[in-house]
């Protein structure tokens, strides 16, 4: 059974995420014309995803070397615009193979 503290965090998180989506839908009926605001909201998802990925990705596996291998494979496949699933699977496979080979090489 999750703690009270967890439910408190969950409630705050879910409440804010919901309000951010629901309020404009219920209250606003005009289109946003402010170019700065539109541009800011365009860039935010890319900036958020990037700062969450680097450097965290290099600590996501049990060795920095396997993480590096997974990162390089992900970058190559993403560059050629492979699907999210393809990139994820081959990136994971690169980590698995590297971690299998590392003890043999060292």
């Amino acid at each position: 059974m999750p703690s009270m503290n967890f439910f408190f965090h969950l409630g705050v998180m879910a409440g804010i995420t919901y309000l951010v989506r629901m309020l404009p839908l219920v209250l606003v009926n005009k289109k946003i014309r402010n170019r700065f605001l539109l541009s800011f909201l365009y860039y935010v998802p890319y900036a958020v995803l990037s700062v969450m990925t680097v450097p965290a990705i290099f600590y996501a596996t049990s060795s920095p070397w396997s993480a590096l291998a997974g990162f390089v494979i992900a970058m190559i496949l993403a560059f050629f615009e492979k699907s999210l699933l393809t990139v994820a699977i081959f990136s994971s496979a690169a980590v698995f193979v590297t971690e299998f080979l590392l003890p043999i090489i060292q």
Partner: peptide, 22 residues
């Protein structure tokens, strides 16, 4: 553990797949 470790990178791989093409 070896499989969990490998899958630990999956979500970051997906983020890269979203960001890099743009």
């Amino acid at each position: 553990d070896s499989v969990s470790s490998a899958l630990g990178i999956a979500i970051y791989g997906m983020f890269i797949a979203i960001v890099l093409p743009t």
